[in-house]
Design a protein around this nucleic acid. Structure first.
Lengths: 300, 300
DNA sequence: GGCGCTGGATCGGAAATAACGATGCACTGC
DNA sequence: GCAGTGCATCGTTATTTCCGATCCAGCGCC
C-alpha cells in the first residue's frame, strides 16, 4: 500500500471543487502539489479519475466517481480514528482498566464505584482484583492503567500516590480473654495461635511485625481470603493481624469479633494508587484519582 | 500535522510483534524509523500506546489496545480501497456507464446487452440514451465512459472506433407510386413532402444530402422520434431519409413501409464507439468494445 | 555485584519526497 | 485573433524520512 491519506484528501478536494486550482486554494497549498498527487494516485492504480478540460477545470470519470466515493469513506474513517484517539485521552467516556488489591476491594470500591458512576456515568470500569504480584504485573504489562493497593515492595517503576495509612490491628473472637482489654500486646499474641492472611508480601509483612520485636508468631492457619481469616478467628481458631476494618464486627458465620489496637509500635501500611511511572494518565484515570483522594478518608 | 497510514502500519506491527526491533525486521525497515513513527503518533494524540520494557520489548497500554484495534480496522479499510481501485480498472465486475444514440439503441442494444449479460454476468450497464449533443457532453464530462453513436461532427477530443457504415435510404409508404421501383432518385424525392428526423447534427446531415445535389428538401414534418417519423411516412405524410432499418416493414400503427436505396451517390454515416481520446478504458469497457466489434455486423 | 546482552531512544548525515514559483501549453470565450 | 483560464512540467528549495552508529537502561547470568 503506497498511497497516502493526504493524496486522498487532495483527490476528494479536487472532485468537490471541480478544479485543481480551486482545491489548492481551499487547502492552502500549491496547485502543482495537488496535480502531482492526483497523477500519482492515477499511476498507482492504473486508473484515470479525472478528465482534464482545458481552461475549465476537471470532471470525474465513472471510475473516478466510484473511487472518490470510496476515498471519502476512508477519510471519514480516518477522521473517526482521530476522534477515537482524542476520546481515549481526553474524554470522560470509555473504559478504565483498574486493578485492586483483593482485600481492599470490598471495603472501599463499592462506594467509590457508585460515586464514579454518578459523577461520570460514561466511564466503564473494568476491574481486576488480585494480590500485589498480579496487580504489579498487570500494571507493568499495561493490562491495567492504575491499581489500588498497599505500598508493599512495589517496583520503583511504579509511581505511587498515597491515599491513606492503615495501622494494623489484632482481631479476636469477642469472648477471648485478651479481648477484654482496650489493646493487646504482641507478646501476648505470640502465645496465641495465629491465622495468617497468606498473600504475597502481606504474609512477610505480618510475620515481620513479630520478628521486629524479637518474637515469632505461631501460625496455625493460612488463608488467602480476608473473610475466611475473620471466620477462623471468630470460630476460635486463633487471632489475626489485619489492616482493614469492615463496618461490621460479625463474621459471615454470625460470630462476633473484636478489633484491638496493638500496644507496641508497629509499622503502618499505606494504601496507594499506583501506575507505571512514565505513563501519562488518561483523563478517566485522573478523574478516578481525584475521586479516590476525596473518598478514601471517609470510610474504615 | 496529520498521521499517515504508514505510521499506523508500523504501530500495529509493533503491537503484533511486541517489539520495535522485531517489527522493523518484519517490515524490512530500520528500528529508528519505527521508533520515531510511534513517538510521532503518541505525541500527536497525546497518548501513550506502549510501555517500554528495557531489554524486553514493549507492551500495549489500555489506550494502546483500543487504538491499535481501531488502527487495524482503518488499515483493513485502506486495503479495501486499494482492492476497490484495482477492481475498477481490472475486474469485469461493476458498472459500465454507456451512452447510446437514441435511434441506434433499440436496433442494436438489446441483443448486445443480452450477449454482454451472458458473457460477463457481473457487468451492470448504466445506459443513457440521447442525441449526439447530449452524448458528447456526457462523454467529455466523464458521466459516461463510452458511447455508441454516429460519427457526425464529433469533437476531436473524442476517439472514435468504427463499427459499421450505414448507407442512408428512403422510406415510403408501401402504396406510394415511387415505391414501385427498386430505387429512388433525390430529384423525385425533392418533389415530395419530407418527414425530417429532427435531431442535432442529423437534421443538418439529411438536408445536406439534397443540397449537395443542388436540391432543396420540402420539409413537411419534423420529429425527434425515429418511430414517429416512420409512422408519419406510413400514414402518407411524406417520405423520410433514415440510416437504420428495423427488421420490420410495418409502422406501430400497422401500416406497411418500403425501404428504397438512393440512386445518387450520397455520403454514408459511420456508427462508432466513442470515448474521450486521452482516457484509458476500463476492462469492462474494453470487453464491451470487443463485443460490439463481433456483434455489430450481424444485424440490420 | 559485576558484566555482557537485549532492545528502545537518540543523533547526524544522506536520500527521498513534498512544496513552491515560474513557465509552458492547450483550449475557452469574447 | 487574443486575452484569460487552468492543468502539467520544470528546477529549486525545504522538509521529511531513512539508516547506520551510538547511547543507555534494565535484565539475566554467572
Amino acid at each position: 500500500m503506497q498511497y497516502t491519506l493526504r493524496q486522498l484528501a487532495y483527490l476528494v478536494a479536487v472532485a468537490d471543487h471541480g478544479s485543481v486550482t480551486a482545491a489548492a486554494n481551499a487547502l492552502y497549498t500549491s496547485q502543482p502539489g495537488i496535480s502531482s498527487a492526483i497523477s500519482q494516485l492515477e499511476d498507482q492504480f492504473g486508473l484515470q479519475f479525472f478528465i482534464r478540460h482545458h481552461a475549465k477545470g476537471v470532471s470525474l470519470t465513472p471510475a473516478g466517481q466510484s473511487f472518490v466515493a470510496a476515498a471519502r469513506n476512508l477519510l471519514a474513517h480516518a477522521e473517526e480514528l482521530s476522534q477515537h484517539a482524542t476520546d481515549l485521552s481526553q474524554s470522560l467516556r470509555g473504559k478504565l482498566e483498574l486493578g485492586c488489591f483483593s482485600t481492599i476491594a470490598p471495603i472501599f470500591l463499592p462506594r467509590l464505584m457508585a460515586q464514579l458512576r454518578s459523577d461520570y456515568p460514561d466511564i466503564a470500569v473494568q476491574l481486576r482484583e488480585g494480590d500485589t504480584e498480579q496487580l504489579q504485573r498487570s500494571l507493568l504489562s499495561g493490562e491495567t492503567e492504575l491499581a489500588l493497593l498497599y505500598d508493599l515492595d512495589l517496583s520503583p517503576q511504579l509511581f505511587r500516590h498515597k491515599l491513606r495509612t492503615q495501622q494494623p490491628y489484632a482481631v479476636l473472637p469477642a469472648n477471648h480473654p485478651l479481648a477484654r482489654a482496650g489493646a493487646v500486646s504482641l507478646i501476648d499474641l505470640a502465645e496465641e495461635p495465629m491465622v495468617l492472611l497468606d498473600l504475597p508480601h502481606s504474609r512477610e509483612y505480618f510475620l515481620s511485625v513479630f520478628r521486629q520485636h524479637g518474637l515469632e508468631a505461631r501460625v496455625a492457619h493460612r488463608t488467602v481470603s480476608f473473610e475466611m481469616a475473620r471466620g477462623l478467628v471468630a470460630a476460635g481458631c486463633g487471632f489475626a493481624l489485619l489492616h482493614l476494618k469492615p463496618n461490621t464486627a460479625v463474621s459471615y458465620a454470625g460470630d462476633p469479633l473484636v478489633y484491638l489496637p496493638i500496644v507496641e509500635d508497629v509499622p503502618s501500611l499505606d494504601i496507594v494508587l499506583a501506575w507505571p511511572a512514565e505513563l501519562r494518565l488518561t483523563r478517566r484515570a485522573e478523574a478516578f484519582v481525584t475521586l479516590c483522594e476525596r473518598g478514601m478518608g471517609l470510610l474504615g
